[in-house]
Computed example of a mutant assay.
Amino acid sequence: MCHDCVAGGPSGASRRSFTRFLAAGAGLTVLAACTPEAPAAVTPSSSSPAPGVTSASPTAVAVPSVESTTAAAEPPPQAPVPPSAALPRQFSLTDPGSPWLVVNKHRPLAPADYVPADLVQPNVTLAVSGEAALLNSTTAAAADAMFAAAAQDGVVMTLASGYRSYGTQVTTYNGYVAARGQADADTASARPGYSEHQTGWSFDIGDSGGACAFQPCFADQPAAVWAKANGHRFGFVVRYPWMFHPITGYYYEPWHLRYIGVEAATDMATRGISTVEEYFGVDAAPGYP
Score class of each variant (00 low, 15 high):
E74P: 00
T29F: 12
I273R: 14
F91D: 00
P51T: 05
S14W: 14
R20F: 14
G130R: 12
S92C: 07
M268I: 10
V115F: 13
E131C: 01
P10A: 11
C212M: 08
A23E: 15
V66W: 11
E67N: 11
A62P: 04
A38Q: 14
Y173K: 05
L31W: 05
L28C: 02
R15Q: 11
Q182K: 03
F244L: 06
F214W: 11
R258S: 06
P286N: 06
G130C: 07
Y173C: 00
T69K: 07
D204I: 09
A143C: 03
Y176T: 08
G200C: 00
V155C: 06
S137T: 08
T266E: 05
F21A: 13
T35Y: 06
F218Y: 09
E278I: 13
T125D: 04
L101I: 05
T199N: 04
S208T: 10
E37T: 11
G130F: 11
P241E: 07
A229P: 08
P10Q: 12
G9Q: 13
S65A: 02
A178T: 08
A213L: 15
S195T: 03
D153C: 14
L93C: 01
S129L: 02
Y176C: 08
F21I: 14
R233Y: 10
W201Q: 00
A140W: 03
A151Y: 14
I273F: 13
T171E: 10
E74H: 11
V155I: 13
I205G: 03
A23T: 15
A227S: 08
P99L: 04
M146L: 15
D207M: 08
V103C: 05
P192E: 10
P241I: 11
S45D: 15
S129R: 09
D283K: 13
R89G: 01
H3N: 07
A56T: 04
G209N: 07
P82N: 06
D220L: 03
T168A: 14
Y251P: 00
V66N: 06
P76L: 11
Y259C: 05
A38W: 14
W201V: 01
F234Y: 14
F203A: 00
D95I: 06
F21R: 15
A148S: 06
